[in-house]
Simulated scan of single mutants.
Amino acid sequence: MDDLDWLGLACDLAKLCPPSHTAFSVGAVIVGADGREVARGFSRESDPHDHAEEAALAKTPGGLAGATVYSSLEPCGHRASRPRTCAELIVASSARRVVFAWREPALFTEGTGAEILAAAGIELTELPALAARAQEPNTHLL
């Protein structure tokens, strides 16, 4: 699978999110350096405050050096519900790349995750061709 395939899977996972009027529905997939899936998650998967990247990272055994995180939405750079943002969690995981479809709109907070990741040396790839697919489970918010 390539970046479009993995990111498409993340967009599909966003459709599994319990509905919310106060948070985006997001899906995430972590792929190891060997090209195999390590974990996946989606927003509010097991807790109303779960973010997709956070849920996926919690399922990994650690040691994600060289991994890629695919997220339907730019990983968060600010949040009130937990002490660490998804961008901070990704940096701490040692993943080397983040691929996302849609920049976080300034609906709940300013989207600063990409800047945090870039400052930490994480390679970023935005695939706006999948933005509409990532936005689909969030149309009630937009």
Rank of each mutant, 00 (worst) to 15 (best):
Asp3Lys: 14
Asn138Asp: 11
Asp47Phe: 10
Pro128Asn: 06
Gly8Arg: 00
Ser93Pro: 05
Ser72Cys: 06
Leu64Lys: 06
Glu126Lys: 11
Leu4Cys: 07
Leu4Ser: 11
Cys86Phe: 03
Ile90Met: 06
Val29Gly: 01
Cys17Lys: 02
Met1Val: 12
Gly66Gln: 03
Gly113Leu: 05
Ser93Ile: 01
Leu73Ile: 12
Ala95Gly: 12
Leu127Trp: 11
Ala129Phe: 09
Lys15Arg: 10
Leu142Ile: 14
Val31Asp: 03
Ala10Met: 07
Thr22Tyr: 11
Val91Leu: 10
Arg133Asn: 04
Cys86Ile: 04
Leu89Thr: 04
Gly113Gln: 04
Gly35Tyr: 00
Ser20Leu: 07
Ala80Cys: 10
His51Gln: 13
Ser93Tyr: 02
Asp3Glu: 15
Val29Ile: 14
Arg44Lys: 14
Leu142Gln: 15
Ser46Pro: 05
Gly121Asn: 13
Ala118Cys: 14
Ser25Pro: 03
Thr22Gly: 05
Thr22Arg: 14
Ile116Tyr: 07
Cys86Thr: 08
Ala106Phe: 15
Ala65Gly: 14
Leu13Cys: 03
Pro137Trp: 01
Ala131Trp: 11
Glu104Asp: 06
His49Asn: 11
Val38Arg: 05
Arg96Thr: 15
Gly41Met: 04
Thr109Leu: 13
Val69Tyr: 11
Glu37Ala: 10
Phe24Met: 09
Cys17Arg: 01
Asp3Met: 14
Cys11Val: 01
Leu57Ile: 10
Ile30Gly: 02
Glu104Ser: 07
Lys15Ile: 04
Asp12Thr: 04
Ala80Tyr: 15
Ala114Lys: 09
Gly32His: 02
Arg84Phe: 15
Ser46Ile: 05
Gly27Asn: 03
Val38Pro: 02
Leu141Asp: 01
Arg97Gln: 15
Gly62Tyr: 00
Pro19Leu: 12
Glu126Ser: 07
Ala23His: 12
Asp3Thr: 13
Pro18Ser: 11
Pro128Trp: 13
Asp5Arg: 15
Arg36Pro: 03
Ile90Arg: 00
Leu7Ile: 09
Pro61Ala: 09
Ala134Gly: 08
Leu4Gly: 06
Ala118Gly: 08
Phe108Gly: 05
Asp50Gln: 09
Gly27Asp: 01
Ala114Ser: 13
Arg96Glu: 15
Ala56Pro: 07
Thr68Ser: 12
Ser43Gly: 09
Met1Glu: 11
Val29Ala: 07
Ala119Phe: 11
Asp34Val: 00
Leu57His: 02
Phe42Pro: 02
Val26Ser: 02
Ala33Lys: 00
Leu73Lys: 02
Leu64Pro: 02
Thr22Leu: 12
Cys86Arg: 01
Val91Met: 06
Glu53Met: 02
Asp34Thr: 00
Pro105Cys: 08
Arg96Ile: 05
Ala118Val: 12
Pro48Ile: 08
Ala58Met: 02
Ala10Leu: 02
Leu13Ile: 03
Glu37Val: 12
Leu9Met: 13
Ser43Trp: 00
Ser72Glu: 06
Asp12Met: 04
His49Leu: 14
His140Asn: 08
Arg103Thr: 05
Leu16Gln: 09
Asn138Thr: 07
Arg36Ala: 06
